[in-house]
Amino acid sequence: MIKLESVNKTYKVGNVDVPILKDIDLSIDKGEYASIMGPSGSGKSTLMNIIGILDRPTRGHYLFNEDNIKNKNQKTLASLRNQSIGFVFQSFHLLPRITAVENVELPLIYGGYKSSDRREKAIYALEKVGLVDHMKQYPNQLSGGQKQRVAIARAIINEPLLILADEPTGALDTKTGEKIMEIFTQFNKEGHTVVLVTHELEIAHCANRIINIRDGKIAEDRRLSYDEFLG
């Protein structure tokens, strides 16, 4: 489903080209649960942005669901992101002046759904993360874990092919983080492809494949054994 071929990403700083990703070859199949690890500055966030179609490679090819994104315009890419990728971020990115259920509805507003259909789907998504009883509360009335569950409900409302989570437990305490990771594991069991970006080894081991990025290159790519996966 995800295929990167000789992907390079270079940013220009003044008159200097700074390489961030270097000849990345990576495939992630439909239904996989993978984590991307690496220290600060390793290129893992840049790789996440390319996988999430938030950025394009400088060189190389990215095929998402067998579709090469290279020559697609911004409108087409925005539609592809909205319909096929659910994003979960460390800082939640909830709008403070609307309720939990209204936050969850946002991708459907951009998708042109009717109001009644949006509400029905949003309530169902909140039920999936165990938060329907809080749907009329505002973000400032929710705990960190509850905010993240709202963000996850928003990410899954379009039943995306890919759930892409960037440090999803970084702003949470350990116990709350474990509950959030249980939600991702359940979604993967239901058939969603899940890719986590994290610097925490314990979180990375919730997946069954770990991809280590160092100095813009894949330093290690391994699937966990059954014993490792269990803990």
Rank of each mutant, 00 (worst) to 15 (best):
K75E: 13
I156F: 05
T169Q: 06
I157H: 11
V104S: 10
K175P: 00
S91E: 09
R81F: 08
G177V: 05
P139E: 04
A171Q: 11
P107Q: 04
A122H: 13
E120A: 15
Q148D: 04
M135T: 01
A153S: 09
Q141F: 07
K147D: 05
I123E: 14
R119W: 07
G112N: 08
S115L: 12
Q148Y: 00
Q137K: 15
V88G: 02
K128M: 10
A153L: 07
P139I: 03
T99F: 01
F92E: 09
V129T: 03
L131R: 07
A171K: 10
L131I: 00
N103C: 01
R97Q: 00
S84G: 03
Y138E: 06
G145E: 10
Q146H: 02
E159K: 15
Q137V: 01
H93C: 04
L108Q: 07
L77I: 15
L106V: 10
D173M: 01
L172A: 09
I180Q: 07
L94R: 02
L94P: 00
D117P: 12
V132H: 13
G112D: 05
S116N: 15
G86C: 06
D117W: 05
G177R: 12
K121V: 08
A125E: 02
T176Q: 09
R154F: 03
E120N: 15
L94K: 06
G144K: 05
N158M: 13
F87E: 02
G145N: 09
L142R: 12
A151V: 03
A165G: 08
L172M: 04
K179V: 08
